[in-house]
Write a protein that binds this DNA or RNA. Structure first.
Lengths: 190, 190
DNA sequence: GTCTATAGCATGATAGAC
DNA sequence: GTCTATCATGCTATAGAC
């Protein structure tokens, strides 16, 4: 693996762990086993390297979620997404960036974060809409509101887990969401 | 207002805006209109001042939520909490701290964050349990899971709003949660 | 109690040798 | 391409005058 690649992957790791503000070029270089000159040869500076790393993380998250969101009924796909095994204490490598002021204040750095969640909410809304069209969900459900709720439960579950220092609140939150969604879909058939 | 008070309130503001890692003693001093000597006279350093500010924010959030969560049926109270007007782009001043590695790595700094969410989930679980006892909610709902879901939707809604640069995803998420809860409430069904 | 001066170290970046 | 040296600035804290 070449140096540029090691720098990108090290940045992905450190952004996930410490955020943009809390990640220094020096820390990235040490993690990647590269010198300063090497980093500044491949990238113009911290913003460009972080942008490259964030785009990479966004692509990976979308590819992963896309794979998990295919196959089965709408409820099965949504439940699989919510109940998928995660390291809740680590949180979301993309969602984490939304709390970083330097990222949010920069349209360029914010874009991959925005695109990730726009895509995720859109994909979940399609699935909920499919479930509605198939009569699987109650017609009263709004696809976009429900999709935003599902996305938010996961992101908020990470906050609760980290606050508590335990995975349990995350699991409670997603179980709570699945229970509400599941019952809604079964009662619709009565 | 005396200097110590201005320092505390300035720290509350800046922690909300930029987090712990992104908030420097110098920035606090400038915001409070106080010199370095003044800050270090009243507080041993950044950690003690931040701890004081975070405890204050936690108390205020709990007091506010407690007031909002009294009066009306269980569904009304939960809905009022979810639909309350908020500056979604600003996020939660307590929940924000959960994404800061320096806060989470320090048991002392994490404590007010943990206590806030433990209390909030507990209070919401009580309310859901009351709703269950009164036959207001579907008996299949688990109070703690549902409470964690409600708390997570709000915290995750902030992430979506900040990622999007718009309040709309927050509103979608809480509307989605209220719609699901209302659908499982006997008062809404008939 | 508040101020200024200073310290030691980290940050983010540049320069130039190799 | 990678290295070390260097730089201006900012961070966190201490010292000591007032």
């Amino acid at each position: 693996m070449d140096t540029a690649e090691r720098l990108i992957e090290s940045t992905q790791e450190l952004l996930w762990e410490r955020g943009y503000t809390g990640t220094s070029p020096k820390a990235i270089q040490q993690h990647a086993g590269a010198g300063q000159g090497s980093m500044y040869h491949h990238f113009s500076g911290k913003p460009e390297l972080a942008l490259t790393a964030m785009r990479r993380s966004a692509e990976q998250l979308i590819a992963q979620a896309d794979a998990q969101l295919s196959g089965g009924t709408a409820l099965e796909r949504v439940s699989a997404y919510l109940l998928r095994e995660r390291d809740a204490l680590r949180g979301c490598r993309v969602g984490r960036m939304a709390m970083d002021p330097d990222v949010i204040d920069s349209p360029e750095l914010r874009r991959p974060v925005q695109e990730t969640f726009t895509w995720l909410r859109g994909r979940l809304a399609e699935i909920v809409a499919e479930g509605l069209a198939a009569g699987e969900f109650d017609a009263a459900l709004d696809p976009r509101d429900t999709a935003a709720m599902i996305t938010a439960v996961v992101q908020g579950g990470y906050v609760l887990a980290r606050a508590e220092g335990s995975q349990e609140p995350f699991h409670q939150a997603v179980r709570g969401a699945v229970a509400l969604l599941a019952a809604r879909s079964t009662t619709a058939v009565q």
